[in-house]
């Protein structure tokens, strides 16, 4: 059994290693803490820390706070912070990395349903190779993420306009070489454990 401290250290090492491999990851060391990112973020008001403080926490080695933060899970990937950052930090990519690490660490993140959406989306890709909005929405309704009642009027309207069809939910057409994607997943899982 590893102690909690040991696990913390291993995570820290994994984080450092990953930072080194993501593009310009080391630049967080040169963050000016100017706040351009947080002030540019369209959804920073939903975040506990916001990108600037999150970078500060990363630099200070306060990894547990980082991994428990809701900040990365709120990110909408609009990349405004990234293109504006005067220190050249790819903040959006850093947030992806934190999400990956949070998943790896098993530390509970306060989640806004991102997990479920992400899981359902990926499930669709792996099963069919493509994503059908109807199927995705249905699966979310089943997971209680979207309230059925709310979506009915819009759904009916879309049906009337011919923008969606009910058959696409039932008809499970996948790409020809769906086994390609299965293979890819397996290969990557194999690498991950090895």
């Amino acid at each position: 059994m590893r102690t909690k401290k040991q696990e913390g250290l291993m995570l820290e090492q994994a984080f450092k290693d990953d930072l080194r491999t993501i593009l310009d990851g080391n630049k967080i060391e040169a963050c000016l803490q100017c706040g351009t990112c947080t002030a540019s973020c369209p959804v920073s008001y939903l975040m506990d820390y916001g990108p600037r403080k999150l970078v500060a926490l990363c630099r200070n080695g306060m990894l547990e706070e980082v991994l428990r933060s809701n900040t990365p899970w709120m990110c909408v990937s609009c990349y405004l912070c990234t293109t504006r950052c005067p220190a050249g930090i790819r903040i959006t990519d850093l947030l992806y990395e934190i999400k990956r690490l949070a998943k790896k660490s098993g530390i509970n993140q306060p989640t806004n349903g991102y997990e479920v959406l992400s899981e359902k989306f990926i499930e669709q890709v792996e099963k069919y190779g493509r994503v059908n909005e109807m199927r995705l929405t249905m699966s979310l309704i089943l997971k209680n993420l979207s309230r059925m009642f709310d979506t009915v009027p819009l759904g009916l309207k879309l049906l009337r306009k011919g923008r969606i069809s009910l058959t696409s939910i039932i008809k499970s057409e996948s790409i020809k070489n769906i086994k390609d994607l299965t293979q890819i997943s397996e290969r990557i899982k194999l690498r991950g454990s090895g």
Binding site: Q33, C34, G35, T38, A39, S44, G50, R52, K53
Partner: peptide
């Protein structure tokens, strides 16, 4: 003018 007051941690 939109900026984060970084000493307060508030977007202004």
């Amino acid at each position: 003018v939109v900026a984060e007051d970084t000493l307060l941690g508030v977007v202004r």
